[in-house]
Design a protein around this nucleic acid. Structure first.
Length: 287
DNA sequence: CGTGGCCCCTGATTGC
DNA sequence: TGCAATCAGGGGCCAC
């Protein structure tokens, strides 16, 4: 389940192994993987053929590589997406969705593999005047907390304005990007905040503490090469990253809280799960 | 318009 | 043993 640190690892892999190469052939093996390309799979392939893939950019969990002609190839890994750089001619992976070959002599091709097809590739024009050439579908995606331009004060003000709960806000990519279910639980545990705490009650020091912990969790994961729980996450060269043994809350139902020993609880939440320590992170009164 | 909830998908795991 | 239910979850989309 790639979160921001994993996606950043993929970005670096693309920058090293793919940027600057000229596309030869594009084969779309699953329509759903290009569903965000409005003009369809054939158009996607046609426009990409012959283009040189530019520098690899990231905003939150989105990746994009500008082409020479104003369009960018946008990628989202979703739940199970992987970019693999493989020797051309290697057998296709079971869930290979898009194959991109190159017009050079390096002998490798780029493969987008995605078991659950929540991810996908598409081509888009930039938001007019955006200095980074941010593609249109990403216009509403906020900066991530390890982006130097992330505005802590603006984030705090947005939390105060909202009438929602803290974990919902952390997963709202228009407020802060790159935080997924796992790292939200980890950061809330570190901050001793229950996931249903109203954002309107956040104080400035509390927000600052929360951001610090989010950055620590992400930084730790990035240093470890990304988090993984199974073989679904593989970086651009096919190597798994492992970080799960240092998780404090996520996936630890009934196991003792590393701070106080109280068994960690799991609660159904938004069709997924929230993990928390009932003692360190007490349920807010008004919920 | 802001907020909350549903749903897309596949495979591993669990339960009967 | 075999089949069905459950779970995993990013984020777009829609209803209220």
């Amino acid at each position: 389940m790639p979160e921001l640190p994993e996606v950043e690892v993929v970005r670096r892999g693309l920058a090293r192994w793919v940027s600057g190469r000229k596309v030869d052939e594009v084969t779309v093996l699953h329509q759903r993987s290009v569903r965000r390309h409005p003009a369809g799979a054939e158009d996607f392939a046609k426009r990409l053929q012959g283009a040189v893939l530019g520098q690899a950019h990231r905003r939150g969990k989105y990746l994009w590589l500008p082409l020479a002609d104003d369009l960018s190839m946008v990628a989202h890994l979703g739940m199970s997406g992987q970019f693999l750089v493989r020797p051309a001619g290697e057998p296709a992976e079971t869930h290979l969705r898009v194959r991109i070959t190159f017009a050079d002599a390096l002998g490798t091709e780029l493969r987008f593999v995605d078991q659950r097809t929540f991810g996908g590739l598409s081509l888009h024009e930039p938001v007019p005047g955006d200095p980074e050439g941010l593609p249109y579908p990403l216009a509403h995606i906020a900066r991530d907390p390890i982006d130097p331009a992330f505005d802590d004060d603006a984030f705090h003000a947005a939390l105060r304005r909202k009438r929602t709960t803290i974990k919902r806000a952390l997963l709202d990519q228009s407020l802060i990007s790159g935080v997924g279910n796992i790292y939200a639980d980890e950061a809330l545990w570190r901050t001793r905040l229950h996931y249903e705490r109203p954002t309107a009650g956040m104080t400035r020091p509390r927000t600052a503490e929360l951001l610090t912990h989010i950055r620590e969790v992400m930084g730790d994961a990035l240093a470890a090469g990304g988090t993984s729980f199974d073989s679904l996450y593989v970086n651009v060269n096919g190597e798994s990253g492992y970080f799960d043994r240092s998780l404090d809350a996520y996936g630890r139902e009934d196991r003792p809280c590393r701070r106080c020993g109280t068994p960690i609880r799991r609660r159904p939440w938004m069709n997924r799960s929230s993990y928390f320590c009932p003692r360190c992170q007490p349920v807010p009164r008004a919920s």
